[in-house]
Structure formats: C-alpha cells, structure tokens
C-alpha cells in the first residue's frame, strides 16, 4: 500500500514538472505544443549520452536541462513565434511537424531501440516496513521544491506578475505598454527546460526511446485540462491526483492505468467544456 502511494507521488511529481510548461504555453499563447514532447525526449537522450562521460549524475541532469535551451529557443523563434494569431488547427499541425522532424533526427543519432538506464542512486530505505527507492523520493522532493519556486517566481517577481496578467488578458497587458512577447518567450524556454528535467527524471524509471514523449504528452494534456486552463495551482493538484490514480489502477490491472486517466479527462470535459 505504501509503495503504491509512493509510486503515485513520484509519477505525480514527474507529471507536474512536465505539465507546467505545457500549461503556460497553452494558457498564454493558446498553442498546443507537440514539440514539448520532443523536448522531453531530448532531455532523456542527452542524459543518456552525457552520463557515462561526466559520471556525476547531478551534473548530467544539469547538462540535459540546460542543453535543450538552444533547441527550445530555435523552435520558439522559427515556429512558435510565427504561429501567433494562426488558427488552432494549423498550430497543432505545425508543432506536430516539428515533433516528427525532431523524432527522426533522434532516430538518426541514437537509433530507434529502447535504451535502458540504471537507477542513479540505487539505494533503498525502509519506511513503515516497506522498502522504497531513495531516487523516487528525491523526485517527489524536487517536484515540491519546483512548485514552491514557481509560486515565488509568479507572486514576487515583476516578470511573474506580467505572466499571470497575460494568462488573464493578453490584450490589456499589451495595452499597458508591456511587450508580452518577450515574457512569453521566457516562459516558453523555462517550461521547455522543465520538460527536459522531467524527461531526465523519468528516464531511469522507464526506458529512453524516441516515442516516450508521445504518451507523456497525452497525460500532461489531461493534467492541464483537469487542473483548469492556465491555472498553475490546479495543474499542481491535478498532477498529483492523476499520478495517484495511475498508480492505484495500475496496481489493480496494468493496462487500466491510462484508461482511468482518460476517463477522468472525459468526465472533466463533460462537466465543463472547453473551446479554445
């Protein structure tokens, strides 16, 4: 029972780290960013490539998280920025195309076989008679720390306040003479770095493969919808709630874990429909 709860919290933490960037892009620019899944996957691959050379796990995590920033910048500059004001369907197709291009480049470099990674800490501790891996607990701590940092960033800094205002009403913020574009770019890049961090943290739990982002994207979309559009606190609650749902149903019957998440998504859409 305890191990189920712990796994649920770990999944929830990873889902939160990935979804927060997706949530901000969706909330501020109204763009469904498929390339987010690509960034997530690239994070996992950079970790795989750098870990044997550096040898020190936290340094490799940092390398992967910072390494995707130029890629995110290129995607933002040449694709996302040109999509402002386009209709939603074209933005989805364009970011999907970026996803396909990136996927093929990844396959070109590393091949399409799944790559296994080992647990970087590889220690367990006993809590109430249950053995738990330290690594998974570390993931939960990192997620909570990030949630607090994001809260401080949004509430205390000028940039954060502008982003919150942009979530509410972009036009009025622009009317006040603030160049919203710059802040949205910043949020996009921070979100992408966090997506890569999510990929890095998720990689040792599963395997690194080109399509790993595909499934995660659907889950983080469910998190964003269930948590409420552009509501970063809702995203936090929904991530841990859905992580727990996945863990509990997965214990009962493996294939049911995703189905349960999407069933909750369907109920949430029935209760209040979204049209963006």
């Amino acid at each position: 029972m305890i191990s189920v709860i712990a796994y649920g919290l770990t999944l929830g933490g990873i889902l939160y780290i990935i979804s927060i960037g997706f949530s901000f892009t969706f909330g501020t620019m109204k763009i469904v960013n498929y390339a987010h899944a690509l960034i997530f996957t690239i994070g996992g691959y950079i970790l795989y490539a750098t870990l044997p050379r550096i040898g020190f796990y936290p340094a490799a995590v940092l390398a992967a998280t910072l390494g995707v920033i130029p890629i995110a910048f290129i995607i933002e500059r040449f694709v996302i920025r040109n999509l402002y004001g386009e209709s939603v369907d074209l933005t989805i197709i364009a970011t999907y195309a970026v996803f396909l291009i990136g996927l093929d480049v990844l396959k070109w470099i590393w091949g399409s076989n799944p790559l296994q990674m080992s647990d970087p800490i590889n220690k367990t501790f006993t809590f109430l008679g249950t053995e738990l891996p330290v690594y998974r607990m570390a993931v939960i701590v990192i997620a909570l720390a990030l949630a607090i940092l994001i809260e401080i960033f949004l509430q205390r800094s000028m940039a954060g306040k502008i982003v919150i205002a942009g979530l509410e009403d972009k036009e009025t913020v622009r009317g006040l003479g603030i160049s919203v574009q710059r802040y949205f770019t910043m949020v996009f890049i921070i979100g992408s770095a966090l997506a890569a961090l999510g990929g890095v943290l998720y990689a040792p739990i599963t395997v690194v493969e080109p399509y790993m982002g595909f499934q995660i994207l659907m889950l983080s979309f469910a998190v964003v919808i269930v948590g409420g559009l552009g509501n970063w606190r809702g995203t936090f609650v929904a991530a841990f709630f859905l992580g727990m749902v996945m863990s509990v149903t997965g214990r009962w019957w493996g294939p049911a874990s995703e189905v349960a998440v999407f069933a909750i998504l369907a109920v949430s859409l029935l209760i209040h429909p979204i049209d963006i």
């Binding site: 969706f26 369907d89 859409l269 979204i274 049209d275």
Partner: peptide, 14 residues
C-alpha cells in the same frame, strides 16, 4: 462538446 485544441487532443487520448 469540446472544440479547437481540446477536441483534437481528446480524440488523441481516446
């Protein structure tokens, strides 16, 4: 009941 991005992604989820 959904439109736009939500419609696209709900279908993908199913």
């Amino acid at each position: 009941r959904a439109a736009g991005a939500a419609f696209a992604l709900v279908n993908m989820a199913f």
